[in-house]
Amino acid sequence: KSIMKVYCQICRKGDNEELLLLCDGCDKGCHTYCHRPKITTIPDGDWFCPACIAKA
């Protein structure tokens, strides 16, 4: 079994998992407080990182 360690693409830390959003496009993580602008609430439904939005 392989366990994927998810970490924030900005701060490179994997702590505060409850505030770590996973992109529905690329599965990369980003803390709500590292994202600019900050994300104050966990979004309902799908969330896409800035890189995936730029590709769309």
Results as ranks from 00 to 15, higher is better:
Cys8Val: 00
Leu19Asp: 06
Pro50Val: 13
Cys11Ser: 00
Ala56Glu: 15
Tyr7Pro: 05
Lys13Leu: 10
Asp15Cys: 07
Tyr33Cys: 03
Cys8Thr: 00
Leu19Met: 14
Phe48Asn: 15
Tyr33His: 07
Ala54Pro: 14
Gly14His: 10
Glu17Ser: 12
Gly25Ser: 06
Cys30Lys: 09
His35Pro: 08
Ser2Cys: 05
Ala54Gln: 15
Cys11Val: 00
Leu22Met: 10
Arg36Ala: 12
Thr41Gly: 13
Asp46Thr: 08
Thr40Leu: 10
Gly14Ala: 13
Asp15Arg: 03
Ala51Pro: 15
Thr40Lys: 15
Thr40Glu: 11
Cys8Phe: 00
Leu22Asp: 04
Lys13Arg: 05
Phe48Met: 12
Glu18Thr: 12
Cys26Leu: 01
Met4Thr: 10
Ile42Phe: 12
Asn16Gln: 13
Lys28Met: 13
Leu22Lys: 15
Ile42Val: 11
Ile42His: 04
Lys1Thr: 06
Tyr7Trp: 07
Gly14Leu: 10
Ser2Pro: 04
Met4Lys: 07
Phe48Ser: 14
Lys13Thr: 06
Ala54Tyr: 08
Gly29Ala: 10
Ile53Tyr: 11
Ile10Lys: 07
His35Gly: 08
Pro43Gln: 13
Leu19Phe: 03
Gly45Gln: 15
Thr41Cys: 08
Trp47Met: 03
Ser2Leu: 09
Met4Asp: 13
Thr40Cys: 15
Lys13Phe: 04
Met4His: 12
Ala54Cys: 08
Cys26Asp: 01
Lys5Asp: 06
Asp27Met: 07
Cys30Ala: 08
Phe48Thr: 13
Gln9Trp: 05
Arg12Pro: 00
Pro43Leu: 06
Pro37His: 05
Gly14Glu: 09
Gly25Tyr: 04
Cys8Gly: 00
Cys34Gln: 01
Lys5Trp: 03
Gly29Lys: 10
Cys8Tyr: 00
Asp24Tyr: 01
His35Tyr: 05
Gln9Ile: 06
Arg12Trp: 04
Gly25Ala: 05
Asp24Met: 13
Phe48Lys: 15
Lys38Gly: 05
Val6Pro: 06
Leu21Asp: 02
Ala51Phe: 02
Pro43Asp: 09
Ala56Asn: 06
Cys26Tyr: 01
Gln9Met: 08
Cys26Ile: 01
Glu18Leu: 08
Pro37Glu: 14
Lys38Ala: 12
His31Gln: 01
Ile42Asn: 04
Cys26Arg: 01
Leu22His: 11
Lys1Gly: 03
His31Ser: 01
His31Arg: 01
Trp47Arg: 07
Cys52Val: 00
Asn16Lys: 15
Asn16Gly: 12
Gly45Glu: 02
Ala54Leu: 14
Leu21Lys: 12
Val6Asp: 12
Cys52Ser: 01
Asp15Val: 10
Asp44His: 12
His31Ile: 01
Leu19Pro: 09
Cys49His: 03
Ala51Thr: 13
Cys49Pro: 00
Cys30Ser: 12
Cys52Arg: 01
Pro43Gly: 12
His35Gln: 08
Cys52Pro: 00
Gly25Glu: 12
Trp47Cys: 03
Leu21Gln: 06
Asp15Ala: 04
Leu21His: 02
Asp44Trp: 05
Thr40Pro: 14
Ala56Ser: 03
Ile53Lys: 08
Cys34Gly: 02
Phe48Ile: 15
Asn16Arg: 13
Cys23Phe: 02
Lys5Leu: 05
Lys38Gln: 04
Pro37Cys: 03
Ile42Tyr: 08
Tyr7Val: 06
Arg36Asp: 11
Asn16Leu: 07
Asn16Met: 06
Pro43Val: 07
Leu20Lys: 06
Pro43Ser: 14
Ala56Asp: 12
Glu17Ile: 07
Tyr33Leu: 05
Ala51Cys: 07
Leu20Asn: 03
Thr40Met: 12
Gly25Gln: 13
Gly25Cys: 05
Glu17Lys: 15
Gly29Ser: 12
Arg36Cys: 13
Ile53Asp: 12
Gly14Val: 14
Cys52Glu: 01
Pro50Lys: 02
